[in-house]
Write a protein that binds this DNA or RNA. Structure first.
Lengths: 236, 236
DNA sequence: GCTTATTTATACGAAGCGGTACATAAATCA
DNA sequence: TGATTTATGTACCGCTTCGTATAAATAAGC
């Protein structure tokens, strides 16, 4: 293909954002935490947006952007086509939203590991364990890393999506760099070690296990690879 | 998608292989090197198979399996649809053949570097230079590594293609392992170094620059990453 | 010349694609 | 109750998809 069509105007619903800025404040005193059901006006939704997005993610993650049809997404989410479109925009828009939800999920899990505040070596092993859990999950076989999938899919021709991918790569590098820097300050790494270089190697290890997982290399083999890589990165 | 159709019988042309084994030997004394034009019977081809395959590779490499249409392939090769089908089989078959030609090309280039028989560090730098040349090439922007593309495309649901990918990954690991082993025997690496572990790290570095290249990270940045990785792998 | 072998060229067909128009259903508001 | 608002369900649109049937073109063999 030679860049078939440019993304058409997504036609987002009004969302009343403009109206809100017109009125100084709506009548209700203050919704405090927005967790209460806001008593919407028309027919209620038959789906939960978060759940639907997660189901859509499953399909995109398994098959990639181009090989996933709206029928597939419709079947996975239980929403029919017009509802899908109304809720998330067109296929590209939906893809971006699923990718963002993936990133949020991954960030949350990595954040938990980071908060555990372990020494370098067990910390790295825990992080790679989480990554392997993600990359090997999926009913239709292991799916790898969605960032890698996105980087290699035709969706990367969309500048928005490419920007998301780049930010994902950078975020991963920074995460590992922080880790190595802390370890170095604690004396777990020699002063000569370069946290940035080690972070790139750590990201590279993430990428290689994502690719190998997708090729259905068994977990034991990936764990052996990780153990070796960690031994080099947390040298000593 | 949920595995739409299984690959239909490719309907390979007879190729006279069976007939050959029936006759002990054809009448002509012996074709020696097969480089002479074999004087085929019907209308001559308007294409050169190798060139056409290379053009098809360009398209698949850029867009991936699912996003590439037969029309795209037809336009790129200059062959019309029935000729394409007659020469290479259906889309999957053609994809496999392009992937094999890619592997051959990559193997040849890496083989040249290997034959140069340099010390470890310049050898690694040369290899990564070749990889960067490949991954950053392409008229429509950098294309990354075709093995990674294939591993993440839906083509991985085809067992044949998955087997090709696995063999590609293994080949890369073995190539690097041989390199590190030789270096260790020459005393360029400490005896405690594990060539297999270093090889996996070297492959991981290949994979990470392939992904980043596809996300259009500039070459200078990728070279900096490579320099850092090589410094760690060829430690000292 | 005529027959046979092989390739190209045109054009078709059934299925799938992304997206949307339109009517219907289910809720709130007056 | 009836008007309004929102979401759903059906059915369709024009286009693209992969693959192939069929006829024309170009070669060798006789």
């Amino acid at each position: 293909m030679v860049q078939k069509r440019s993304p058409p105007p997504p036609r987002a619903r009004p969302e009343a954002a403009l109206l809100k800025s017109a009125k100084p404040q709506p009548a209700k005193p203050s919704p405090a935490a927005g967790a209460v059901p806001p008593k919407r006006r028309g027919r209620p939704r038959a789906y939960e947006p978060d759940v639907a997005l997660s189901r859509a993610l499953d399909v995109f993650w398994k098959d990639g952007f181009a090989a996933t049809s709206l029928d597939d997404l419709s079947a996975a989410t239980g929403m029919n086509r017009p509802s899908l479109y109304g809720a998330f925009g067109d296929k590209r828009e939906l893809y971006k939203k699923t990718y963002e939800s993936y990133r949020n999920r991954a960030r949350a899990r990595m954040g938990e590991a980071f908060a555990a505040d372990l020494p370098l070596r067990p910390m790295l092993l825990r992080i790679y364990g989480i990554a392997l859990d993600m990359y090997l999950s999926g009913e239709g076989g292991p799916r790898g890393c969605f960032t890698v999938m996105t980087a290699t899919s035709e969706a990367v021709f969309d500048p928005d999506i490419r920007a998301l991918v780049v930010s994902g790569l950078v975020e991963m590098d920074r995460f590992f760099a922080r880790l190595f820097k802390i370890a170095q300050e604690r004396g777990e790494l020699p002063a000569t070690a370069d946290p940035q270089v080690l972070a790139n190697l750590a990201s590279a290890t993430i990428h290689t296990i994502a690719i190998r997982a997708r090729a259905q290399i068994p977990r034991a083999e990936l764990e052996a690879l990780v153990n070796g890589a960690v031994a080099v990165m947390a040298q000593g």
